[in-house]
Simulated scan of single mutants.
Amino acid sequence: MKNLTPWDADPVKGFKEFVVTDAFSKTAQRLRADGTLKAMSKESAKTYVFMFANAVAWITEQGKTLTTVTAGDLVRFVSRVDGGKPVLNSKIGYRYLRLLERCYQHLGITPNPAKQAILATDRAELPKDDPGRALSPEQLQRFFDALPAEPPRGKRVVPFSGWNHRRDRAMQVVIARAGLTVSEAIGLLLHEVGNQVALDGSIDLTITPEEKHETSYEHIAPLPREGVVELLPWMDERRRMVKEVAMKGDFVFPANLEGAKMTKKTVYKQIKATFARAGLDTSRAGGRTLRNTFAKAQLDAGARPDELKDVLGLALERSAADYKFTRIKDDPK
């Protein structure tokens, strides 16, 4: 058994040092066809560190340490619910347990509590995966037709009246057409919007972790012509607002003239309202549904999982391969 004191004192530091070694790769038998070890990508390492730190934070909240937590504790960790809904689905819960199993294997801890937890649940007791809801092409068009409308020009009483409606419209189109998460959309910065329009009318959005969720990965999200025709007029209006009404900040879609960042809750409500106007079921409607719709369209068009991984900014190719969908229903009312 290895010296466990450093891992109990600062487990995240110990894991960061471990995850980039061949020893970590060996625990997963990451071998090429010629028998050599596959290198761990920086993106994958970052995902594993995030997962490990999340697990350790929960373990600490329970008054335990990495080496005193039990299999029963770990079963509770992956089976948690919040507001009646599972915190982790079966795939993610299993990956957490498998990651911890590899750590305990490396540390020489027997019996391995994570392995015991996997055997105890056999994944049957973990919350089941729920297929992502996606829109059909006809439903997606109805969504676009129901986007926030611009107030009649005759009712404008101040310069740029109704600018927030045009902001919301452009943002929802960008989310749907480029497959962004809500966090990526509200954190989109001016310098991340490409200046060059391609021959097919598209532009590149360079998504970076800056101002986004901590698990966002830098990637290029092409915005097709249909999204560009909504975004560029808003960008032009935003530039004029900087000059004429002193709009501040670097967000493409600021919350107000002071340049504050929009909240995810606000965007979720706005997207849900568009679903309602389109006559679509709002019980599972949100930014994730638009991202799922984008992903499904990419796969239907022949995109490979590795290609979808790059476009969506996913850390692992298998995350793209795991995508599965059901149709979102029309509003039964």
Rank of each mutant, 00 (worst) to 15 (best):
A295R: 12
P254S: 08
E307K: 13
K329Y: 02
R102I: 07
A176M: 03
S136C: 10
A295F: 01
R304T: 03
M241V: 06
D8K: 07
L257S: 02
R318F: 13
G279V: 00
E258L: 01
A55F: 13
K296S: 12
Q141T: 12
A134V: 14
K85Y: 05
V182E: 12
V228G: 00
G279M: 01
S25R: 12
G302F: 09
S90L: 03
R102G: 13
R102F: 07
M262L: 15
P111T: 04
L74T: 13
E101C: 02
T282G: 08
L290R: 13
M40T: 14
L107R: 02
G302V: 10
R291P: 13
K329F: 02
G14Y: 03
T266A: 15
K269S: 11
A114G: 01
K243E: 05
M1Y: 05
A178P: 15
F24E: 00
K46D: 10
D281H: 03
I271T: 00
W7Q: 00
N256W: 11
N3D: 08
E150C: 06
A303H: 15
R30V: 07
V81K: 10
E101V: 00
T36R: 12
A39D: 05
Y94D: 12
R156I: 05
L135Q: 04
L308R: 13
G179I: 07
H106M: 04
W234A: 08
L119W: 01
P233V: 09
T47R: 05
L280R: 00
P113Y: 06
S319W: 09
I59G: 10
V157E: 15
E214L: 07
T60L: 02
Q141A: 12
K329C: 03
L147Y: 02
G201E: 07
P209A: 02
